[in-house]
Design a binder for these strands. Structure first.
Length: 647
DNA sequence: TGCACCAGCGCC
DNA sequence: AAACGGCGCTGATGCA
């Protein structure tokens, strides 16, 4: 194939030092508030030295980049099209000693839309940028796979690899048998960490380049056809995307450092391979079981619908206005159709009972009845996609499908099975958010309880019921669970009452709830004091134990201030465990298949089950201990032939 | 017809 | 003064 190669000579003279053309979009920031934990203070020297690959290693003046004369348009780049094995060999030699490589890919699929699916699409171009060199644009359609060795060596080398949304490229590269090793840097994740939850979109490359380099990155070619003869415009576009990553990194890293986000960035970058692994692996489902379950759900939903019809006739039960009117007409005293208003009326009004049943069954059916459609035609498994910083707190989110919301019921989780000869090993942190609370607040009673191996729910029960530990009933322990989870986030008495009823089936009066509340804060004085400190500090920023930041535009809700560092620390811990795990799984075989906030699921050969149990437990505990210094970390691990086989 | 928003509900 | 937090998916609704 003939490609017009746009060769631009190497720059002959040193470039002038660049203007500081960027500005921190977060400026002016509130002063850091360290009420969460004094260990969180930005120990800048430590932060700066801790991770060499995040250091500002190469000044912009040596990157060989053209400084834009116009601040608007992203500068043209010097690039070289690589369309033969000999050229590849030659260019890789130039890159060999580079400490930092910026990498991007252009992908294509056999069918429209498959360009985003690594199991269907193919890599057309791999663009590699290194300081002082032309960007290499490697045409994978022109290089025989048996002659890719130089490229593989380069990407498996020890250079820092910079990507924007690394997960995407790494999935394709993995499938193309071009594994990427070495430290990763992801400019998309870096930008998300810097914004710290102030916005939830605008993180594609064009947006981030605009925000941090103040340049317009042309994107017209992004959705062009990458499967045929390529135009010079396409090649230049591809090269530019890689080149800009080098400069982006140079700008983002000092910002991360100034914001004391280097440590958490390191965690996020190191965890990327685990998410690549999980998305590529997906989870196997037992088709027969799943089909049977779907049938059952459909029947249940239909039966409930028919039953409801007896009461309400032919109106649409999914329509709230219609349903509300129907209920009123039947004399049910309601002003809304919410679950909470309906629940107490179920006993007295058969129509309400029928409606609740209908809602439950039809919701399940419509939400989970589509799971079979999610089985991938190539792999036969379900491949969700994860958003590594999907929640503002730092938690991971999951979609298409959201396996994190799979019902706990065995009929659902039992459908998720390993391949024949494998088992699923499931690890859960025990009461991780309560332990985080103990660590963050340094509440003496909580710390003592955990360090003495006591059951904290039981302890709370004995406190709020004002009776000895031994006398606590199962019911009372359940109630205390609600109290624990509710009150550390400053739940009011009324909400606590509702919550205990709905979540744990525990009834209490409003007066009882109020008493529980008071006794709770009397007993857990450290938690109470922490609440007071937070309230008085009125920060617009919180930090997790790993230093992850959350910012607020206006005044945060007090409950968000209580929750963010606790929930976020769980995210830190689980990610740390995932990152350690992905490098330790090699000996065992198999891989990571899922994570659900405080849970990690791996699939391994049956013969390695016991070994995997130990590895998973040890690794999760090690990760927890990294942040919980005064509270013991407990992990429940079990294995079996389905996701339902929990401890 | 498409899009944004909401309620409702699954999970941690 | 009082306040539980964080997600994604579905169908209905209302506006353009």
């Amino acid at each position: 194939m003939m490609i017009e190669v746009m060769e631009i000579p190497e720059p002959v003279s040193p470039l002038p030092p660049p203007e500081k053309i960027f500005k921190n979009p977060l400026e002016p920031t509130e002063p850091l508030s360290h009420f969460v934990n004094n260990r969180l203070q930005c120990q800048s020297s430590e932060e700066k030295m801790a991770h060499c690959h995040l250091s500002h290693s190469e000044p912009l003046s040596q990157t060989g980049m053209v400084i834009p004369t116009s601040p608007k348009i992203s500068p043209p780049v010097q690039y070289r099209y690589i369309g033969s094995s000999d050229e590849l060999k030659e260019v890789v030699r130039f890159f060999q000693d580079a400490k930092v490589l910026a990498i991007d890919t252009e992908t294509t699929g056999a069918e429209k839309g498959d360009g985003l699916d690594p199991h269907k699409g193919k890599i057309r171009l791999i663009q590699i940028a290194a300081a002082g060199h032309h960007v290499a644009v490697v045409d994978m359609f022109e290089i025989p796979s048996e002659e890719l060795a130089p490229l593989k060596d380069l990407l498996a080398g020890s250079a820092i690899k910079v990507f924007h949304n690394a997960k995407f490229d790494l999935k394709f590269l993995q499938i193309a048998d071009i594994p990427v090793k070495g430290q990763l840097c992801d400019t998309q994740i870096a930008a998300q960490l810097l914004i710290s939850g102030l916005k939830d979109d605008g993180y594609n490359l064009k947006d981030v380049v605009k925000d941090y380099l103040l340049e317009e990155l042309p994107k017209e070619q992004q959705v062009s056809d990458w499967s045929g003869d390529l135009t010079p415009y396409q090649i230049e576009y591809a090269a530019r995307d890689a080149a800009v990553l080098l400069r982006l990194r140079e700008v983002l890293i000092p910002l991360l450092r100034d914001a004391c986000l280097v440590k958490v960035a390191k965690i996020e970058f190191d965890t990327i391979p685990a998410f690549v692994e999980m998305e590529l692996n997906g989870m196997k489902v037992d088709r027969d079981k799943l089909n049977a379950l779907c049938l059952k759900m459909e029947e249940d939903a239909k039966e409930a619908a028919d039953n409801l019809k007896v009461f309400i006739g032919d109106i649409n039960p999914n329509s709230q206005p219609q349903m509300l009117k129907a209920l009123k007409d039947m004399g049910v005293p309601v002003e809304s159709t919410g679950k909470d208003t309906l629940a107490p009326l179920a006993a007295d009004y058969p129509v309400v009972k029928a409606l609740i049943k209908y809602r439950k069954t039809s919701k399940l059916h419509q939400a989970f009845g589509k799971l079979p459609e999610r089985i991938h035609p190539v792999t036969g498994r379900i491949h969700p996609s994860f958003d590594q910083i999907g929640a503002v707190t730092g938690r991971v989110s999951c979609k298409e499908p959201n396996l994190q919301q799979t019902p706990r019921d065995k009929s659902f989780r039992g459908c998720f099975t390993p391949e024949p000869g494998n088992v699923l090993v499931i690890g859960d942190y025990s009461q991780i958010e309560l332990r985080n609370t103990a660590e963050v607040t340094q509440d003496k009673r909580m710390l003592d309880a955990y360090n003495n191996g006591e059951d904290l729910h039981r302890l709370t029960a004995s406190i709020v019921m004002d009776k000895p530990l031994q006398g606590v009933t199962k019911q009372e322990r359940s109630a205390a669970k609600a109290v624990n989870f509710g009150l550390i986030y400053a739940m009011g008495a009324a909400t606590l009452r509702e919550y205990a009823e709905n979540s744990y089936g525990v009834s209490m009066s409003l007066e009882e709830a109020e008493i529980f509340r008071e006794r709770f804060f009397e007993a857990y004085e450290g938690v109470a004091q922490w609440h007071i400190r937070v309230k008085q500090a009125k920060p617009k920023e919180t930090r997790t134990l790993a230093g992850r930041r959350r910012l607020w535009n206006g005044w945060p809700k007090i409950t968000e201030l209580y929750n963010a560092p606790i929930q976020g620390t769980s995210g830190d811990i689980t990610k740390k465990a995932l990152s350690l795990l992905s490098t330790r799984m090699n000996d065992i075989g198999g891989g990571i298949v899922l994570t659900v906030h405080d849970e990690i699921v791996i699939e391994v050969p049956e013969s390695k089950a016991e070994e995997a149990v130990k590895l998973l437990r040890d690794t999760m505990i090690e990760a927890g201990r990294e942040y919980l210094k005064t509270v013991p970390v407990e992990v429940d691990v079990a294995y079996g032939k389905s996701w339902a086989d929990k401890a």
